[in-house]
Nucleic acid binder design. Structure first.
Lengths: 232, 232
DNA sequence: GAGTGTGAAGTGATTCACAGCT
DNA sequence: AGCTGTGAATCACTTCACACTC
C-alpha cells in the first residue's frame, strides 16, 4: 500500500470494478482474479492489481480476490457507505430528465431538492413528487438539508453563477452539464458531462474514418472526460 | 502539419476551441492568440498550438489566429458541415429527456427516430412530435433515413443487443448511456457517458478530501471519459 | 501452479523553450 | 516585439516481468 496521489483514472476504474463485483456477488461467485476481471473490459490485469494496491492488499497470492470482501472495500473507498444528498439546479429538459431518472435517486444518491429561476416552473412537481423551488431558497436548503452534491443543468451563461452560489453555501462536489468550463475554487470538485463534445467527437470520427486506429480505440476505454479546473 | 494519429484528447479539445471561437465571432473579435484562449480554460498555450498544428498551419506568426477562418477550419475538421441524423433507442426517463433536450436536436444533430421495445410506449410522441417506434423498425429506419449516430439509453442488459443490431445496420457512431462496457467492432466508435461513474467519482472526492491536490485537478480538465473498446 | 504486488520499462500526453516569421 | 510551429524534455499512465505467497 502506497500513499501516492491517486489519479482520477484510477478512481473511475474502481467504480467499474465495483459494478463488476456486484454482478459477480449476485451470481454467487466467491472469488475472482484480476485476469478474469481484466478480460471483461479489455483492460490489463496489472492495471487492476495496481489500482487496488493503492488502497491496500486485498488479494491472496495464488488465489485472487474474495468478491464480497473486495466489494465492501471498494464501497468503503468510494465513500458509498453513506447516502449523499443531491440538488438539481435548472429544470429544463435535461434537469427534469435527471430529476426523474431512476439511476440517480437510486442507491447512494438521493435527489432532495429541485431549483429553478423561472417563476412559471415554481411549484411544479416531478414524478417523484418533489416541488421545484426558487434558486433563492438554494443556499438555505443546502445548509439545512446537508446537500453534498449539486447538479448544474442550467444554460451555459448561468452556470458560473450557480457554481459560486453553491460553493459559497459549502458544497464541494458538482456535476456540471452546462457546456462551459467552470473555474472551481480549490477544494471544490467539478465533474463535467458535455454532450456537445461527445457528439462532436462522434462527428469527427464519422468525418475521418481513418482515425479508427484499433489499438488506440482500445486503450482509450475509460479515460475520464473532464474534471474541474481549480483556479490557478 | 503532420499525419500522425490524432488523440481523442485532442479532438475533444477542438470542440472546446470551436465553442470559444463561436463566442468570439459573435462578439465581433477578429483575431485571437493561443495564449488568450489558453487562459480561458486553464490550458497550456502550446497545447492549443499543437492541437491545431496537427491539421494545418492556421495561424500567422506574430499575429495569432483569424477567428472566422479558424472557426471554419474546425467546423470542417470536426465534420460539422453536414447535419447528422440521430436515433434514440430506449425511451425511459433518460431517453425521453434526451429526445426533448434542445441542444441535441439543435445545430448539427437532428433526432429523427425514437425506438423502444415496450409496447405500451409505442406511438407516444415527444414534445417535438416524433412518434416512438418498435425496435423492430430500427434496422430499416437506419438504412432508409441514413441515420449515422445512435444513442443507446436502454437498460444495461439490453445495450449490447442494441449495439449489435445497429452495427449490423451500418451505424458507426454510438453514444452509450447504459452503464456497461460495450465491445464494439473495429470501425465502430462508442462514446460512453456514465453518470454512475461521475457520481461515484464525486463521492470518492467527498470521502477523501485529501485527494484534492490542486495541480492535478487542474491538469485533469478535459481528459475524455470513456471511449469504446474494439474487440481484441 | 496460480495469481498477487510492484519495481522497471515502455508508451503517450503535456509543457518547455526557442527558431523563425510578420 | 509578438506569436506561431515544433523538437526536446518532462511528466503521467500503462504494461511488462518477476519475486513472492498460497
Amino acid at each position: 500500500m502506497k500513499t501516492e496521489k491517486i489519479s482520477e483514472l484510477t478512481t473511475n476504474r474502481l467504480s467499474v470494478y465495483l459494478r463488476c463485483l456486484n454482478e459477480l456477488a449476485a451470481s454467487g461467485v466467491e472469488a475472482v482474479s484480476s485476469k478474469t476481471m481484466a478480460e471483461q473490459f479489455n483492460l490489463n490485469s496489472a492495471q487492476i492489481r495496481k489500482d487496488l494496491a493503492y488502497f491496500g492488499e486485498f488479494g491472496v497470492r495464488g488465489v485472487g480476490y474474495n468478491v464480497e470482501e473486495l466489494r465492501r472495500q471498494l464501497i468503503e473507498i468510494l465513500g458509498l457507505t453513506v447516502k449523499r444528498k443531491v440538488a438539481i439546479v435548472g429544470l429544463g429538459n435535461l434537469g427534469t430528465a435527471l430529476a426523474n431518472y431512476h439511476g440517480f435517486s437510486q442507491g447512494n444518491f438521493e435527489v432532495v431538492g429541485l431549483f429553478d429561476d423561472d417563476p412559471a416552473k415554481l411549484g411544479n412537481r416531478t414524478r417523484a413528487g418533489l416541488r421545484i423551488q426558487s434558486t433563492q431558497a438554494l443556499t438555505d436548503a443546502i445548509r439545512r438539508e446537508g446537500i453534498e452534491i449539486v447538479v448544474i443543468a442550467v444554460p451555459a451563461n448561468a452556470a458560473e453563477r450557480v457554481l459560486e452560489q453553491v460553493t459559497e453555501a459549502g458544497v464541494r462536489a458538482v456535476l456540471n452539464f452546462a457546456p462551459v468550463h467552470l473555474a472551481a475554487k480549490p477544494g471544490v470538485k467539478v465533474k463535467n458531462v458535455d454532450l456537445t463534445i461527445s457528439l462532436e467527437s462522434l462527428s469527427y470520427f464519422l468525418a475521418n474514418p481513418s482515425s479508427e486506429a484499433i489499438n488506440i480505440v482500445d486503450r482509450e476505454f475509460l479515460r475520464h472526460e473532464a474534471a474541474a479546473g481549480a483556479a490557478k
